[in-house]
Design a protein around this nucleic acid. Sequence first.
RNA 1: GGCGACGUGGCCGAGUGGUUAGGCACGGGUCUGCAAAACCUGUUACCCCGGUUCAAUUCCGGGCGUCGCCUCCA
Length: 468
Amino acid sequence: MIRLYSTLGRALVDLEPRDEGKIGFYVCGPTVQSPPHIGHGRSAVAFDAIRRYLVWRGYDVTFVRNVTDIEDKIIEKAAEAGEDVAAFARKMEERFRDAYRRLGVLDPDVEPRATEHIPEMHELITTLIEKGAAYQAGDDVYFSVRADEDYGKLSGRDIDEMRSGTRIEPNEAKHDPLDFALWKGAKPGEPYWDSPWGPGRPGWHIECSAMARRYLGDDFDIHAGGTDLIFPHHENEIAQSETATGKRFARYWLHNGMVNLDGAKMAKSTGNVVDLATALDTYGGMPLRLLFLRAHYRAPIEYSAELVEEAAEAYRRIERLLERVPPTDAEADPGVLDAFREAMDDDFGTPEAVAVLFDTIREANRRLDAGGEADALVAAVREIVGVLGLDAGDTAGGLDEEAIRAVAAEFGVEADGDIEDAIEKLLAVRAEARQARDFATADAVRDGLSRAGVVVEDTPDGARWLRA
RNA sequence: GGCGACGUGGCCGAGUGGUUAGGCACGGGUCUGCAAAACCUGUUACCCCGGUUCAAUUCCGGGCGUCGCCUCCA
């Protein structure tokens, strides 16, 4: 039985899907207003790992991750860039998609865009107005939080206490300062869609309610996103959806912790960000993915170059074992898989799962060092690595070909062709030197390659090389 | 001010009422021409003060500190 921590109720609960064996999983995807940063990567990896695990456990998972491609900030940023809003949004969306793929994040089953679901939003808004839970004020339509008796149940907030807070700006058009926009009338020059309430665009929140319902139905299983979305975004989704349908919106709410830089949250609004694509170029996707998976998805994590490098070092331990033992058709060791399952069944405990992975790696190496075989253990490692999505291959930047060719030239090796051939030829030169016990030359080749970012390791079967 | 999370060894980061998390780093060792890798091994733990208990890092209370949300944000 899988147990998971739901923010709604703040407790560990058993996973009991609406439809046996099936799971509807909705993740709040990005608002495509700027390129992705590390925090977006962390969130995507966290829920991708959970999704993969659920599939591995035999569930038929429908994974939906939306793209919010119309919103105030997008309009603002597009204007600053002097670009068409839709084109700008699409460009950003591509950047997110590319970064996700490099992190080994699987494509969603459905990736709906807000701008392509305006009619579904209109339907919800109309229902809310008919029920007296929403009202038109000027060119806008607002949801009336007073219409929802449960309002605040997700974030643990009380309407009256919030109203006395100083940070809520009274707005003449709203009946209550906490009411939020379902539909915003278009100002001149802004993109708009026609609606029963005049030309305009959707408010934030409503797109997720509409798209989740369209693809997963009411009372679907898992709704996920960052902790920073709990209020107001998810709270408002629940309010508008449940008020409109009279049914539960989602059964379980999962929230990933934030990524911190020097102890403070990485956030677009403060400029306190590290660009995800840049980090991917520097370290590769898998070290970053392992960095994320080493911590529990709900805990905040710290990001720094030093920490990714550390994760990269740890990742190489996995790679080395898998290179040491080629794939076989051996059955994965059941004891190892049990330990992995136990770790993951407990609120997707990837840190423990990773510990199981490294324990198994050590045991496998131990047996191999002792001259035995470890096929079942290595098969288990491969399986776990696959479930955690740590096998996507994007491990590091390219080789420094120029430096390698320079080394080749130094030792009179022809290196016009494939760079890997050049490395092999250099290793042959070194092997010859070693054979002749000319260790000075052998070491010079190795040192040269080392400076070019290629690590040479001698094994009983000859030398092999790895990217540094 | 309100709501919530958290304080673990050099760093990151799990977990548990009494028994080794794991990774990285550092020291010693085996192996190796030397290295690297791999393996063995060593070092520094559970913020403070009370309480419950045979026993608390783990439960309860208080304190101190950090962080998040309350405004757009994964």
